[in-house]
Design a protein around this nucleic acid. Structure first.
Length: 271
DNA sequence: CAGAATACCTGCGGGC
DNA sequence: TGCCCGCAGGTATTCT
C-alpha cells in the first residue's frame, strides 16, 4: 500500500481543499471494503464539517465536531480531490461532496482499505488503540527498538513491519532501511546491538523523510490527491530489484520470503 | 505468549 | 489469443 510517506502525501494534498469545509453529500457505490462502510453513512456525514485532518500510522483521520472518519488506503487505495463532477470509473467506490464543490474520491481496486465512522475518541478505536510509536518522532529510537526486540527471535524486518511496535513502515521502506543500515533482514531482532539499532532508526527516519519530500513511491496504483504519481520509486535501491546488481558493491541482489513478504537484499552488504 | 499461516480482493505479467 | 499461476504497497484473525 501506500505506506507512511504515501499516506502523508495524500493527507497534505487533500487538507487545504477540505479543511473547515462542510460535507453536502456522501455517495457510496461500494460498501464492501475491508469492513463494510456503515449503512447509514450518508445521514451520519451530512452537514458535518471537517475540523481537522490527522495521520496516525497509515490511517487518515477526518475529524468533525461530533465524530471522526477513519480512512485506510489498504494495499491499492488512493484519495483524490476533484474540482468538478466526474463520472466514476470502476473501483472508484466513494465520493464526499463538499459545499465548496470539491469532491473527495476514494478509489481502491483490491478493497483492502477502510472507511469508518467513530464517535468519541478515535484513538480508542480498536484499529488505532494498539498502534506503536510514530517513526518520525523522538520516541522512536534505537533504545526503544532494543526494548521491543528483547527476547524476540523474529526477523528484524518482520518486527519493523509490526504496527504494534512502529506504525507506517511497510514492505518497501523496511527493505530499503535495512539495506541502508547494512542489516541482514532475517537476523533475529534480539541479536542486534544498540549501535546497529540506532543506525537502523536513523536510516528509517531519513528514508521516510526523503520519500515524503518526493511525494511517495508509485509502483502501480498510488497517486496523490491530484492523481499524479510519487517520485521516490527512482530512489529505491533494493525493493523490486531482485537479480539486479547492488548499487554499492555490484553483487547480484537476492530475494527471500519473510513473514510471507518478498524481501530483496544484498547478501554481501547486509549481514 | 510469540510466531506462522490464512484470509480478504482485483489486476497484471509470464509461461505455456 | 487465452488460460493458469504467482505475485503485489496491508493487516486482522486464526492456528500451532
Amino acid at each position: 500500500m501506500p505506506e507512511l510517506p504515501e499516506v502523508e502525501t495524500t493527507l497534505r494534498g487533500i487538507s487545504a481543499h477540505i479543511k473547515q469545509q462542510t460535507i453536502a453529500k456522501a455517495i457510496i457505490r461500494q460498501y464492501q471494503l475491508r469492513w463494510p462502510i456503515p449503512a447509514n453513512i450518508q445521514q451520519l456525514l451530512a452537514n458535518k464539517s471537517i475540523a481537522k485532518l490527522e495521520r496516525r500510522g497509515k490511517y487518515i483521520l477526518l475529524r468533525t465536531n461530533s465524530g471522526t472518519i477513519i480512512i485506510h488506503l489498504g494495499m491499492s487505495g488512493n484519495l483524490r480531490i476533484l474540482t468538478k463532477p466526474t463520472p466514476p470509473k470502476r473501483h472508484e467506490h466513494l465520493d464526499l461532496i463538499f459545499h465548496n464543490n470539491k469532491i473527495l474520491r476514494f478509489t481502491d481496486p483490491r478493497r483492502f482499505g477502510a472507511f469508518l465512522w467513530v464517535e468519541g475518541d478515535p484513538y480508542e478505536h480498536p484499529l488505532l488503540r494498539n498502534l506503536g510509536v510514530e517513526p518520525l518522532t523522538k520516541e522512536f529510537s534505537g533504545q526503544y527498538l532494543l526494548s521491543q526486540a528483547k527476547g524476540r527471535t523474529i526477523a528484524i524486518k518482520t518486527l519493523l513491519m509490526n504496527n504494534a511496535i512502529v506504525t507506517g513502515v511497510g514492505n518497501i521502506y523496511a527493505a530499503e532501511a535495512l539495506f541502508a543500515s547494512c542489516i541482514y533482514p532475517a537476523v533475529p531482532a534480539k541479536s542486534l546491538s544498540i549501535e546497529r539499532l540506532d543506525k537502523l532508526v536513523k536510516c528509517i527516519k531519513l528514508i521516510l523523510r526523503q520519500a515524503i519530500k518526493r511525494g511517495g513511491t508509485t509502483l502501480k496504483d498510488f497517486v496523490n490527491s491530484e492523481g499524479k504519481p510519487g517520485y521516490f520509486s527512482s530512489q529505491l535501491k533494493v525493493y523490486g530489484r531482485n537479480g539486479s546488481p547492488c548499487m554499492v558493491c555490484g553483487k547480484t541482489l537476492e530475494r527471500m520470503l519473510l513473514g510471507q513478504r518478498s524481501t530483496v537484499y544484498c547478501g554481501s552488504c547486509q549481514r
